[in-house]
């Protein structure tokens, strides 16, 4: 339960694997069934973005704690093209790939903390955390 899990993302089935691992870790940490689904879905959204825009990258799942609180941190990292306009990318319905455009804003709403760092030509890292209630 202490260590972090790394899931390389380079094909569709890796998204499912990352989601399953995330759900399992969330269950271990004592998240409710609804929260487990929220976390798994957020992982799904960021993992799909990796595949869609960077083609490959990784998802890191890490148990965290802060005084009494326990939580899960999900890091999605790629060395893809990067996002030129983060404000736009976090806007509902904005998409460059004909999707619903809810991937990043959706993941942000599903988690408690959300940070994104992106540099054009270098890659993108999304770090997001959810705490048990």
């Amino acid at each position: 339960m202490d260590g972090e899990t790394r899931v390389p993302i380079c094909r569709d089935s890796d998204i499912i694997l990352a989601r399953q691992q995330g759900r399992a870790l969330a269950a271990q940490l004592g998240f409710s069934s609804i929260d487990q689904t929220l976390i798994a879905t957020a992982i799904s959204e960021v993992a799909r973005n990796i595949l869609l825009y960077a083609r490959q990258g990784e998802i890191i799942l890490r148990p965290v704690s802060q005084s009494e609180k326990k939580g899960i941190t999900v890091i999605a990292r790629d060395e893809g093209p990067g996002i030129p306009d983060l404000t736009l990318a976090l806007q509902n319905g904005y998409s460059t790939s004909n999707s619903l455009g809810l991937g990043l804003p959706g993941a942000k709403r599903l988690m408690d903390e959300f940070a994104i760092v992106s540099e054009v030509g270098k890659g993108t890292t999304v770090t997001m955390t959810k705490w048990t209630q």
Binding site: S33, I34, Q36, T37, L38, T41, E45, N92, L100, L102, P105, G106, A107, R109, L110
Partner: peptide
């Protein structure tokens, strides 16, 4: 649609 899925879709904004 399970309660979990319904809840998630609303939160994402679908």
């Amino acid at each position: 649609l399970s309660p979990e899925v319904a809840h998630t879709l609303v939160r994402i904004g679908v």
